[in-house]
Amino acid sequence: MPHVVAACSSCRAFTGDVAAFDVEAATVREMIRELDRRYPGFGEHIERRMAIAIDGEIHQDALFAPLPPGSEVVLIPRIGGG
């Protein structure tokens, strides 16, 4: 089961004090749906505002990226650049 960590404070508006979740999900989309079920509105926040690091590799807009069992998923703010 992937372990999801919300590393930044913007997520707390949805999750309160909870910053880590174990989520039964095989893809990023399944993870987002499950988190949105638990914390309504969080899913859209993740989709629009967050990048997703899967085992250390940062993904943006990777809705269908697979989440290996036991993977660590970290939600971080999206990154742009100059």
Partner: peptide, 13 residues
């Protein structure tokens, strides 16, 4: 170093 958790969340690789 590799395997450590970055201050911003994910593990470095």
């Amino acid at each position: 170093r590799d395997g450590m958790k970055a201050s911003y969340g994910p593990v470095f690789k």
